[in-house]
Nucleic acid binder design. Structure first.
Lengths: 339, 339
DNA sequence: TTGTACGCGTTATCAG
DNA sequence: CTGATAACGCGTACAA
């Protein structure tokens, strides 16, 4: 049960290995219909498959893309991963995945391991605090950043149109005639989407002259007190709360659950990231959903382009231009913001 | 900026490539402390890393494990993936991931692609209806099945102790003095965990002489009617409902939400798979949680063993014994089953 | 303890 | 349109 080599196929088809190789790679040099058919028959009959390791060595290319995600417990990440996987398969790429769990040390180790494995490029959703390592890696092999930017890294960036989504969520709150609108975030998270969303939120409030602010949750009982204060405020006038991401929203839901089973009268809530439970909580939660399919396509488009460029020119251009892509998401309106 | 080869390191250290290779692979043949130090210095200084593609070709081994998951929108799958990833990294393995989305055709294509990529082994959480393809693949390369078994496949199987978990959930329902207990499942899902759980459930009811049955949901309005019936029944006497998995539980929650914001009086619910929202729904849902860390370890233990065996003996044993491992999970009791 | 020489399977180049 | 040949970079007998 030794594995077939290209030479075996060549012998059985009565041609040379080079010809079989051309057949396999659809080389421009056309071959006679006769030999083509003979080779096809032998391959079909034997079930021959070329050996990837040998191709990789020869071509200096693995068709492998490394993916490093910060937090898969976040369903948005899993959806993203699935979309990337499907999109990669379409292009004949495979994904080597790794998860940092929010630890920069693990993230750096993951990146190093993936590079060692010979990936053609990297997709990184960084957990932060790794700028130097990522920048130096990006200088050596193609890298596309997902959602979160990295200072000084010569890598492309793909995100959702966060500013626009914030605007749409604020729209919903105002349609629901909220008198004050808050955005809920948390201390630990200094990622770029968070920053962009909160900044955009503040600008929206100013632009429309609406009362409200960004509330940054601390830890433990302090945070509980903050949220209690926020929720009690709802008793009087109509109040809107937008969670800056899914993790924060879960904390918000938890706090609301302490008070009662349903949304307090006068409180409207909305969040980012369309998790399954958003459909059922409070009869449905208004959500800014990111388009994972289009994001995945944009990510792999950029990466494939970079990989091709790198393959063509052995010396990477000194002034690599960084491309930033914003993929439009959509706001799904559900009963948590109905007037 | 050409990449360094082992030969370059050898020259700089004033030794032969073979010696550097031995250094890299910690060959038993000891080398003089002097040359060892010189090689170490050069490698450290140059940042040399051996080329994986060349090693793979030479050693006929990739240190790559293919992972095929049926449904990553299921948070249990993501947790499993993360655990596998961490565990694999510890062993110097990397994961190539693929997702079938419940489609047997995609699953078969994924498996084929991963095998082509040269993975050393496969971890498969099958979506079903692929027994022949999986069995023939398992006959060629090491495979470990996750949760769901495949008829006729010479592969090991790792699952949770579903029967025990069912027993514990029924225990909780009885502690909550439920007079009747139901297990909710759905038509489409004929997977082995579902079958094992429902069978165990029926046995438990008989053993304890408790009233109840397995309710298999159909589609759409029919299912809604079934659930309405179930929920109305709760009005009278105390009733327990156990969802056979997370997907079914989401349907149950949806139906309950149609009626009101909180759990109807007299109704107790519990489910499998510890999703984030189980902590907040109804003030906390009692859950049979699977131990993803231990499962991952068991999976990769088995796989590594098989891979080593296969590497040693070029001819696989005709009578391969299939090993089945049951990893104990735990029941997390929350207020949805408090008396 | 170390070095030499060969082969892993494929593809690119060049000659025909 | 096809064939011969030389790499790709590494690991490992075997020889020294």
């Amino acid at each position: 049960m030794v594995r077939l080599r290209i030479r075996d196929i060549a012998e059985q088809a009565g041609v040379s290995p080079a010809t079989v190789s051309r057949y396999l790679n659809n080389q421009p040099g056309q071959m006679s219909e006769d030999t083509r058919a003979r080779i096809a028959e032998v391959i079909e009959r034997t079930g021959y498959r070329p050996r990837t390791a040998a191709r990789n060595l020869r071509q200096d290319r693995s068709n492998l893309v490394g993916v490093v995600l910060a937090d898969v417990s976040n369903p948005y990440s899993s959806a993203m991963l699935e979309a990337l996987s499907a999109c990669a398969a379409e292009r004949g790429l495979s994904l080597i995945t790794s998860f940092s769990g929010g630890d920069p040390v693990i993230e750096a180790a993951s990146v190093a391991r993936l590079v060692d494995m010979g990936v053609d490029g990297l997709v990184v959703n960084t957990c932060g605090d790794n700028d130097e390592a990522l920048a130096s890696t990006a200088a050596r092999i193609p890298m596309v950043l997902l959602d979160r930017e990295v200072a000084g890294a010569p890598a492309d960036l793909v995100t959702s149109n966060n500013r626009e989504l914030v605007r749409l969520l604020v729209d919903e709150m105002l349609k629901a005639s909220c008198e004050r609108v808050f955005m809920l975030t948390e201390r630990g998270d200094e990622s770029s989407p968070r920053r962009i969303r909160t900044q955009a939120f503040v600008r929206e409030l100013q632009r429309r002259n609406v009362a409200g602010e960004v509330v940054s949750l601390g830890d433990g009982s302090c945070a509980q007190a903050q949220m209690d204060g926020l929720l009690r405020a709802a008793a009087g006038r109509r109040l809107g709360v937008i969670a800056v991401n899914g993790a924060v929203f879960l904390r918000l839901v938890d706090a609301i659950a302490q008070i009662g089973p349903s949304l307090p009268a006068g409180l409207r809530v909305a969040t980012f990231d369309d998790y399954p439970w958003n459909h059922v909580l409070f009869g449905g939660v208004t959500t800014a959903a990111q388009d994972t399919g289009r994001i995945a396509r944009a990510v792999l488009d950029r990466l494939a382009r970079r990989v091709d460029e790198a393959a063509r020119a052995s010396v990477p251009p000194a002034r690599a231009e960084r491309v930033e892509v914003e993929v439009p998401g959509t706001v799904v309106v559900r009963s948590s913001t109905y007037a």
